[in-house]
């Protein structure tokens, strides 16, 4: 029974991280129709920035997280301005290739400075809570609470602020949004900024119980794509629900089926789902 609860805990942790990453990806897709293959690289840069700020600059975990979120947000905005904006009228294959270009560049740069080695990042939350036999490391609890807070904060931002409302409006109807005079450039930059910050925070939350290395974004971005396809590309609740589905599938699959193949579960799921429903699980109407 406890082992079962333990897996639920693991599923929640994984699902929270995946959900945060997928959230950024789905926002960008919803607004700009760009599948940002570089999103995993932003996540990776986020982890390295926090690592750098903590180890080399020596700031506290929370400040490192904030600093990293700001840096990656700016980086994402630069990508939007320099790369995706000029490509907005190009054939769809071009922005995907450009995103791959960004991904390759960021990984190579990080590898040049930090090497390809695996690193460990510390966190002040090293304690372990024991609830009557159910063991919960503090960092995991932090991940879940952090993700919940961010999702709630994002919801408030999107629903209650003017900027948020314009983002929603544009996600729902791009042409219409142009007609009513929404500043599309500003919305695009905002969206990229938010998605970058989310990726950096997710990476900083997860890094202490995982490893930091230049290729760390690969698996995460692929899973995030699986998640937003599951949840419907562009859908915010879909990203969260999809994140949880994949998180739980991995936690339980890894435990009850096979650890070696746990990473394949998400992709297997994707193949099965897309084979049956080419437009995704929860997607409305035609693709």
């Amino acid at each position: 029974m406890n082992l079962f609860l333990q897996q639920i805990m693991n599923g929640l942790t994984l699902g929270s991280i995946y959900g945060l990453v997928a959230l950024g990806l789905t926002l960008v897709y919803g607004i700009l129709h760009i599948p940002n293959f570089a999103h995993g690289a932003l996540y990776m840069v986020g982890a390295f920035m926090s690592y750098f700020l903590m180890v080399d600059v020596g700031v506290h975990y929370w400040f490192a997280m904030a600093g990293s979120a700001a840096i990656v947000a700016v980086l994402a905005i630069i990508c939007e301005r320099l790369v995706f904006h000029p490509l907005r009228h190009s054939p769809p294959i071009h922005d995907k290739i450009a995103a791959i270009g960004i991904l390759l560049f960021l990984e190579a740069v990080v590898q040049m400075f930090w090497g390809a080695d695996f690193r460990r990042m510390s966190s002040p939350f090293t304690g372990i809570l024991n609830f009557d036999g159910l063991i919960i490391p503090e960092q995991r609890l932090l991940i879940i609470i952090g993700a919940l807070t961010l999702v709630a904060g994002l919801q408030i931002f999107l629903r209650k602020t003017m900027t948020g409302a314009t983002i929603i409006a544009m996600a729902q109807n791009r042409e219409g949004a142009f007609l009513v005079g929404i500043d599309a450039n500003r919305v695009a930059m905002m969206t990229f900024g938010i998605s970058g910050a989310l990726a950096a925070i997710a990476a900083t939350l997860y890094a202490p119980i995982n490893l930091v290395y230049p290729a760390m974004g690969h698996l995460v971005i692929m899973k995030a794509f699986v998640i937003i396809i599951l949840g419907g590309m562009g859908s915010i609740p879909g990203a969260i629900v999809g994140g949880m589905i994949i998180g739980f599938a991995e936690a339980f699959g890894g435990f009850y089926i096979s650890t070696a193949y746990k990473d394949i579960i998400a992709f297997g799921l994707l193949v099965v789902i897309l084979s049956i429903r080419p437009q995704g699980l929860f997607a409305k109407g035609a693709h």
């Binding site: 129709h33 794509f225 193949y261 992709f267 897309l274």
Partner: peptide, 22 residues
């Protein structure tokens, strides 16, 4: 995979490539 359009196809094949690697 080819029943999927554009982005979906690219993402799907990305995953297929990774499954092959795994």
């Amino acid at each position: 995979s080819l029943r999927l359009k554009e982005h979906y196809f690219a993402i799907f094949t990305l995953c297929v490539g990774f499954i092959i690697y795994l």
